[in-house]
Amino acid sequence: MITLIVNGTRHQVSVPPDTPLLWVIREVIGLTGTKYGCGMSLCGACTVHVEGRAIRSCVTPVSAVAGKEVTTIEGIPESHPVKQAWIADDVPQCGWCQPGQIMAATALLAANPKPDDAAIDEAMEGILCRCGTYQRIRTAIHRAAGTTSKGGAP
């Protein structure tokens, strides 16, 4: 049995220790907001926080996070400035990558409350969006941070 703390709730899970955290969150705990996109830490759709840091749950063995605080999209309050900004800027299109985008953005702002465009690019370039919502993501992060965007590739 492995003890997991997800969004403040303790879970005892009985899975092989090398099971990727992503699939424990989705299939065992039943929280499907965290998405699968590549399985190789290439797209970031599976991004969650472990002890506040953004990690890729598709390549993180569940045993590595035993007893640690895991936060998923469902654990970010609705009132969080990032979620609010996402709504204000109408960011999502298909929506599949957005939980990962939001988890990366919330971790970025926790570490760097006033990121410039370069800092945003650096924090976000690992999260792919096939619909191309990047421009709105950048705007929304600036909105959440209370800063303004220069916009566009530098």
Partner: peptide, 10 residues
Amino acid sequence: IIRMDEMPRV
């Protein structure tokens, strides 16, 4: 596929 840092201003 293009990433955040490759997205132009549209």
